[in-house]
Design a protein around this nucleic acid. Structure first.
Lengths: 260, 260
DNA sequence: CGGATAGTTGAGTTATCTCAAATGCAGTGG
DNA sequence: CCACTGCATTTGAGATAACTCAACTATCCG
């Protein structure tokens, strides 16, 4: 049995203080569905420890941390748990018999891996940490109950579903209908805009922890080919990569490339 | 304003009779979500006309018919209407700026184009009739209300969402990760199994109204290449096509082909 | 420093595309 | 019944984007 009630130390976030207080949130919590459903207790601490859940008004759950490369959802949890990424980068992917992998989405702070998890598990998908990840897991039944209490239930669900469907349609369109350069360009632009929204971009520069294999798996290419495309982009001074950070030098060129 | 209350003559289905009676359903209604939500009044007729909706216990809506190639959902309806295919073949697709089209799903009788429509419109997607189609359109708000009255709401939603997500993941995996033959094979097998479930297949033979362009748009190929693949399949006596009907002659071969 | 992982580069192969012309087929009007 | 029109399908030739394989280099981390 999972111990979702367990509270854990967290060092980097949440201010110290005494007594019961409002939960504090990471910047990335802003658009998080768990927060909008009023289900997330946040990172409020009292005396350096997470406050007991009864006091937060949230749904029972605990923050967990995962090192890079670690699987975030284990087989036995699949049935009952809804995972939400609080910070770090993760990837949600499927695999074929022949061992080919398709990354369906890169997950950033505040992302629910898929709204489907609220209804039932996304069997066949696995979620893996790319960087170290902090993540909160809710019991599905609890989150469903919380969801139904929120008056905007249908509109919240609608927004979440629509956003996800749109992403998935976009992916379907991109794969095999656009040349490799366009796919790469689109992915980079989409990452930039998501990170900007979460205040995690410094101008046109952002953290970029993805391996070329990740890109390849997301874009339906081989790592070798991704390398060649990225090299061309660098040679053309459209992007620059240094110390796991990526800068978009010529956004117009990249946007032009993204079409067709 | 849409006149969803309008009742229309239907000739092919529904038994004639007097007075109020149970709505009759097409064979394809069996797994239809509108029926499971107890929202569909069915095809019951009284005196040759569809019964008034107040008597059916269903949600207001009317059966509409569309000739082949006609768009099923019009721009102004997008906001408020949930379409369900009752009979015939339709396609749900998106288009890029460059005019390329991706068919996301072929819709058969009993199919809701996407469960997303229950929450909000799938902007960017269009639904078109391939064969003549009969289709029922529900007001979103009515269907939402009906949904919440059903105790199995979450599990029904879950099933529908999961099925759709799985289809979409499969599509994502197939595009650009499998060779053309495998994609064609997978599509044919998937159609056969869906049609079998709806009792619309005669052994391994089924109606096959799709143009090669439809296949191409669904599989991320060109029509020319689809033609070549289909020719090879016919030459190898794996399938046979005649008068808009397709027979799978060697299912093992096709299933083998579908993997990799 | 050594070992592992990730990225780069080049040569040769192949699946799929583009273009273009020929054929077939169904419906229409004379 | 025929010629005519508009699609859909077929076929071939050549072009190309992306792949595979394999060796080499750079980077990271203990």
């Amino acid at each position: 049995m999972l111990n979702l009630l367990e509270t854990q130390e967290i060092s980097s976030c949440g201010r110290r203080g005494a007594g019961v207080e409002e939960g504090t949130f990471l910047p990335t919590c802003a658009g998080c569905i768990a927060r909008e459903l009023k289900a997330c207790p946040g990172f409020g601490v009292s005396g350096g420890r997470l406050r007991p859940l009864e006091e937060t008004g949230g749904v029972k759950s605990a923050v967990q941390t995962f090192p890079a490369r670690r699987q975030i959802l284990h087989a036995r949890e699949f049935d009952e748990v809804v995972p939400v990424i609080c910070s770090g980068w993760a990837a949600s992917s499927t695999v074929t018999q022949n061992g080919k992998r398709q990354v369906l989405a890169f997950l950033l702070g505040g992302d629910l891996a898929s709204i489907n998890y609220l209804f039932e598990s996304c069997s066949g998908r696995t979620i893996e940490a790319i960087t170290p990840v902090t993540c909160r897991k809710f019991l599905r039944s609890d989150l469903q109950a919380a969801a139904l209490r929120v008056s905007l239930f249908f509109s919240l669900m609608g927004k979440a579903l629509a956003a996800e469907r749109q992403e998935s349609d976009r992916l379907n369109l991109d794969l095999h209908r656009r040349p490799a350069e366009a796919r790469v360009a689109r992915l980079l632009l989409s990452l930039l805009s998501r990170l900007k929204r979460a205040n995690k971009a410094d101008g046109d520069t952002f953290e970029f922890p993805l391996r070329q294999q990740h890109l390849a798996d997301a874009l339906g290419l081989t790592a070798v080919h991704v390398c060649k495309v990225m090299s061309r982009l660098r040679a053309a001074r459209i992007i620059a990569v240094a110390r796991r950070h990526l800068t978009i030098l010529d956004r117009n060129a990249l946007e032009f490339m993204a079409e067709r």
